[in-house]
């Protein structure tokens, strides 16, 4: 069965989706990630979707689910690198990404995760570029 590889990176879990998503694959990712969050006591999950050209309501919901489930297990989720066309399409579709943090790229996503987890500067965290 096809699987998306998940990397452990300190307290974080790192996923870069490089293949075309389909429902089963996304559902597997959800299950695998949540299991690994528990196994490694991870504090943050970073999912890079810069190579994903299509996200529909189902795959979008999986991302939201991952964020919500991780949150219950005390881990924050950042989705990074969403393509412009994908972002506009999701808005048009009517999907809301509650509970998911977004960042432009993996680097900024990592910073965001760190600031979320260690509560670094509470006022400006999302926008910080430092």
């Amino acid at each position: 069965m096809e699987k998306i590889p998940i990397l452990k990176f300190g307290e974080f879990l790192l996923v870069t989706i490089q293949v075309d998503l389909y429902d089963q694959l996304a559902e597997n990712l959800e299950a695998d990630l949540i299991n690994l969050v528990r196994k490694h006591h991870s504090r943050g999950v970073l999912i890079d979707i810069s190579a994903v050209s299509i996200i529909d309501s189902f795959m979008g919901r999986i991302l939201v689910n991952i964020a919500k489930m991780s949150k219950i297990m005390d881990a924050e989720t950042v989705v990074t690198g969403m393509q412009p066309a994908v972002a506009i399409t999701l808005i048009e579709l009517g999907l809301h990404f509650e509970g998911v943090y977004n960042a432009l790229n993996i680097e900024k996503g990592m910073e965001l995760l760190r600031s979320k987890i260690y509560n670094l500067d509470e006022d400006h965290d999302i926008y910080s570029s430092e």
Partner: peptide, 13 residues
């Protein structure tokens, strides 16, 4: 690209 993404996403649904 945007319109492509829109119709393919719609098709996916």
């Amino acid at each position: 690209l945007l319109y492509q993404t829109k119709i393919i996403t719609a098709a996916s649904e």
